[in-house]
Design a protein around this nucleic acid. Structure first.
Length: 531
DNA sequence: GGGGGAAGGACCA
DNA sequence: TTCCTGGTCCTTCCCCC
């Protein structure tokens, strides 16, 4: 097993730095060439050195796990097997296939919004973000290996013609609100995960929809100034009319079967209308159609009996496509078999590597090795693995309860001067206090976060007897935490590159009435260089 | 042995 | 020249009762 790890280390470069091609639009590109370029411009940097260090820690973790595995006895294994079987039985008994859960994901959202508002960008590789970090890239850019969470300067090496557009969150928020209005028509309790993503439970909608007259399932194509319908990507058909808005993505081939494109009987101002059916797929197709009509942006969707599966499904026919997994156990199990574990939300880089070391790459292996996993991982972890291997997930979506923490942090060039560090600390406290005030929240634990120029992160926390909220109260704690850290490295200076501040729940009086309010974790992040 | 706090990480968008 | 931000949840260690 040692050889496996060594092999990994010599396999060329760090897996965490290398191109991650499990995102849509990344198929069939020259991985070797791209990885060579990424390495060439990353190697030797402080960031890279820190990534190396983290990778080695993961490798050590895996070695410890393999050692543990070597000591497992047949008896332990069979005992664990019984436990797994009992647990499986309990889970199967309450398997719920009755809900219709949809996961909707806007395609390359920020990039799509920017392209819509600046059609010159349409045929160019572009990304949204800055030279230090990209948040999204369009599909042209993805062909060069340019992806989200890649620094812009590396992306420029991969694709010298890349256009980088700065982020404009206010705009994305506004578009997101428009999209969410449509979501609400299908599920008033939909759960937004971010500006570009949401879960919906459309079970009730489908119930009503079954008896809807055609008129309620008919949607007019948006018209432009001259009264002609603007272009829209009708599934399985050529765009009928050239319009003002760019079609950002062709419909993906796999999501065929489509609603009727008809001439409106009554004529009216426009002309073309779309009529959608009553089933889940038609409802979701209609929703995506309406999103595109309203915003000129496309979305992808997954339809499944639970959230975990819906999320995987929405990725299947991305961009501008949808996929439905039928609501029966057999179909779910077949779908799960070959699914790479990494595709499941919650399994990231590290878990993938740990499972990989055990020979587990797809969900079928997960089920086969469950007894072993029960012995090597924590209870929460293996229970989670078991649910995945059975294709189970949350069947009712809940809006988040109260928030657990609130924080603010900032990255900057190397900062060594004490006055500067304290004044930044004060600024962050002010910013956080403002945010806390907006939601009328207080926090009991104040956390100072520091990152030094070598990308090493430290957090230092202090819990108060009662919750605080004002800038002065926060700073009183944060400055002591900062001072302690400075004293610890003195006489060397703290060489920071990031500082942040986090505040946790309490009982606070509001308008004379007592409400349960979360005491937040206050984090205050300062970046320094320790030597 | 359990609860709470502190520190560090994994993971997500 | 440049590798983010703001969340949640989990794990491990330690102390205290």
């Amino acid at each position: 097993k040692r050889h496996l790890l060594e092999g990994d280390r010599f396999s060329g470069f760090l897996s965490r730095m290398a191109l991650n091609d499990n995102k849509a639009g990344m198929e069939g590109l020259d991985r070797d060439k791209i990885n060579k370029i990424i390495m060439k411009f990353s190697k030797g940097s402080r960031f890279y050195e820190n990534e190396m260090k983290k990778e080695q820690q993961v490798n050590q973790r895996i070695e410890r796990m393999m050692l543990q595995k070597a000591h497992i006895t047949e008896q332990q294994l069979s005992k664990a097997q019984t436990q797994v079987e009992n647990m499986t039985f309990d889970l199967e008994r309450v398997r719920d296939l009755s809900r219709v859960i949809v996961h909707v994901d806007m395609d390359a959202f920020y990039a799509a919004v920017e392209t819509r508002d600046c059609p010159d960008l349409k045929d160019k590789p572009m990304a949204v973000g800055s030279m230090s970090m990209l948040t999204t890239s369009n599909y042209h850019a993805r062909k060069f290996g340019v992806r989200a969470a890649m620094p812009g300067f590396i992306a420029k090496k991969l694709c010298p013609n890349l256009v980088i557009v700065p982020t404009n969150f206010d705009k994305y928020r506004a578009v997101s609100a428009e999209v969410q209005e449509i979501f609400a028509d299908y599920d008033p309790h939909f759960l937004p995960m971010s500006l570009d993503e949401a879960y919906l439970d459309i079970s009730e909608h489908l119930e009503q929809r079954r008896v809807w007259p055609e008129a309620l399932r008919t949607h007019r194509l948006r018209t432009n100034d001259t009264g002609t319908a603007t272009s829209v990507s009708v599934p399985g058909q050529e765009s009928t009319v050239e319009g003002l808005s760019p079609v950002l993505f062709e419909d993906s081939p796999s999501s065929s079967s489509c609603p009727f494109l008809q001439d409106a009987p009554g004529g009216g101002a426009g002309g073309d209308v779309m009529v959608f059916g009553t089933c889940a797929e038609e409802a979701v197709r209609e929703m995506r159609f309406r999103i595109e009509q309203k915003t000129s942006l496309t979305a992808s969707a997954g339809i499944a009996p639970n959230m975990m599966l819906a999320k995987v499904c929405s990725d299947k026919n991305k961009p501008n496509g949808q996929y439905r997994l039928p609501s029966n156990r057999q179909a779910v199990m077949v779908f799960i078999q070959d699914l790479p574990v990494r595709k499941v939300s919650g399994i990231g880089n590290v878990t993938e590597k740990m499972l990989g070391a055990l020979g587990i790459t797809s969900c079928i292996h997960l089920g086969q090795e469950m007894a072993l996993l029960a012995l090597l991982f924590s209870e929460t972890a293996w229970h989670h693995f078991l649910e995945i291997s059975l294709g189970l997930g949350s069947t009712h979506i809940e809006r988040d309860g109260e928030r657990k923490s609130m924080s603010t942090e900032r990255t900057f060039g190397e900062m060594v001067a004490l006055e500067e560090q304290f004044s930044l600390c004060r600024q962050l406290c002010q910013d956080l206090a403002q945010d806390l005030q907006k939601e009328a929240l207080r926090g009991k634990t104040v956390t100072l976060k520091l990152k030094n120029v070598n990308f090493e992160v430290k957090t230092r926390a202090w819990t108060l007897p009662c919750a605080v909220a004002t800038s002065d109260e926060l700073f009183a704690v944060a400055k002591d935490l900062l001072k302690t850290e400075i004293d610890n490295v003195s006489p060397q200076p703290l060489r920071l590159r990031l500082m942040g501040n986090l505040n946790l729940p309490s009982l606070t009086g509001l308008n004379g009435v007592y409400h349960w309010k979360k005491i937040l974790n206050i984090t205050f992040n300062v970046c320094c260089i320790y030597q």
